[in-house]
Each structure stands twice: as structure tokens, then as C-alpha cells.
Design a binder for these strands. Sequence first.
RNA 1: AGGCCCAUAGUGAAACGGCUAUCACCAAGGUCUCCAAAACCUUUAUUUGAGGUUCGAAUCCUCAUGGGCCUG
Length: 303
Amino acid sequence: MNKILIISGPTATGKTDLAVKLAKLYNGELISADSRQIYQGLDIGTGKDHPKNFKINLIDLINPDESFSVAQYQKLALQKIAEIHSKNKLPIIVGGTGQYIDAIVNPNKSTYFIRPNNFLRFFLNKLSTPALQKIYRFLDKKTFDSLNNSEAHNPHRLIRKIEIKLSNKNIFFPLHQGGIKGGLNILHISLTAPTSFLYPRIDARVQKRLDIGLLGEVKNLIKKYSWSSPGLNTLAYKEFKNYFNKKNSLNNAVKKWRFDEHAYSRRQLTWFKKRENVHFIDITEINFLSKTLDLVKKWYNLS
RNA sequence: AGGCCCAUAGUGAAACGGCUAUCACCAAGGUCUCCAAAACCUUUAUUUGAGGUUCGAAUCCUCAUGGGCCUG
């Protein structure tokens, strides 16, 4: 067994339902690629309404006050894939976190091993964007000049680039090649839909999550964790910070949440659109399901 | 019927008669390889319409149109 099936796409396209269906058909096991469902206790807001008695790997891994990264995800996911393969089952990766999926599809990138340097970040975080630009230009003028507008103004990214640059110079962290052996046979299906279809669907889901007790969940979480916890910087939670601090009405918080979800789905669409070797399937097409099943069947049997 | 007030981007607002009409949100498009449900970038109005005053008008005047308030 060397196959991996990937189901990606923006939020509210029904990825999980499809993945469960396929898992039953092909003796598969699900691996989540979702940077929020890894948090324990974030259930309603992150949509952990999976069918019970169906195992999904790589969810509920850490507490909301712990941080997590692509590198950790990559390590765990690759382990899990090997484990599932050894049972002669089909790993099905399902989720909307594009970067996590890339870490599996494209595992040989050389910067993952460079760990966050919290000491360095602490200081760099205090600097303005122009100051960060100056530092990075000094360290690596060539790369800096090649950055696009988005990258050059993104303090987050500049800090990471500086971190990588300094670490490259450090002889105590020699470069090495990580990643897994080649020979994987990947089918990547990405679900899409026009935003005019997605937005109302997102709005309905927002309402549903409120109805089944999201606010109670948030209330419980903030008893135990501070708003600055990494896990609480999540859609469906962060929008309620001002509400619970009495600085915003419930209506406005919900409105903000809906808009944030819309923007998020757009970002996801943009991300996946650019990936290579992806089969896009529009879920508003009438024969969407049969088309998908055919595609998987052909791939599974032929290769 | 009479009197008063308002009209700026999809929405809400800003702009002593003077730089290229500003900001937030929405929307659309985009960036990305250890924070990614994060962070970041770009685009969108000649100011309701028609005249007038002025070197210069969103801003002042007249009329029209649309909306609101008060009196009867």
C-alpha cells in the first residue's frame, strides 16, 4: 500500500461526510488536517460533529493554551500514514488547513527543522515592520528585494525569515534533509463551490452552532484559559471576546463571526486554487458525488 | 398646505471654500513552507441630478428629485 487520498476544500463543503463515505468503501482511515480541531475542548465551534464510533486521527491532541505547528503536524501525520499503510489500509487526509496538507504532499522542504527561537522572537516582536524590513534587508538583500508586497509588509513572515537566516549561519544547526521516501501515490480532491452558495450555508451553520450551545462552550473555556491562548485565537471563539468583556453586543459578535467565516472560506479557495495536481470538484454540480466516486475508483483500481 | 432638517463607495461615517475626497466594515482578487481558522497585500465614489457664485465647491446660492421631523 502506497496510496494516500486527500479531501480538501473550504469550510462548509462537506469534506468530512465525503471522507467518511470513502473510508467505508475503501477500508480507509481518516487523518484530520485541521489546525483547530487539534485542540481539546473546542468542539462546537470547530465543528467536531463527526459521526460517533468513527475514528478520526489527529484531533484533540493538545490543550487550548498550548501551541502547535506545521512541523509537529508533519511529523505526526507521516507517522500515522505509515502506521495505516502497515495495516494495509488507505489513509484519507481530510481538512481545510492548506499548509498542513502541503506538508504531507511536499514533505521535503528544508526549513521545517529550524525551530522557533522564542528568545529572538520576543525581541523582534517589539519592532515595527520597517525596522524588521531593515534587519532582513541587511541579512539577505537579494531575497528581500525579491519579496512581493504582501510578504514584505508581513511582520510575522519577516520574523520567521530572519530566524531562518540567522539559524542558517549557525553551525550548531547543520542542514539536513527530513521528509519521507518517495513513491507515494496521492490523489488530491479539492471540493469547491461559488461563494454565493457557500455564504448562506456558512450562515446557517453559524446559527446552528449557536443553537446547540456554542456560547456555553466559550464560557467554559474562558474560565480555564485566557483569551491570549493560542487555541482561543480561532474563528467562533475570538469573535466573542468583546462580547464577554461587555464591549460588544451579541448581534455584532455573531455578525463579525459570519464575516470572518466568509473571509476564511475565500482564503481557502484562493489557497487551493493555486496547488498543483489537484482535482477540483464543484459540489453544486448535480453529478458531483458520482463524479467523485468514479474518480476515486479509477485511481484506486488502476494504480 | 406651511415650516425645518438631511442627501458623500454596497453599508456606516469623515473632510476651516484649497494637496490626488479620508476611514472602517462588506465584497472581489491575491500572497505564503514551523504561529496558517493566523498574518499580510491590492482593487472599488470625480460627493443624488441640473444650473449658478468663485482663481478654486462635497462644502455657498437656486431649482428638481428622494428621505426624515414639526404644525394643520
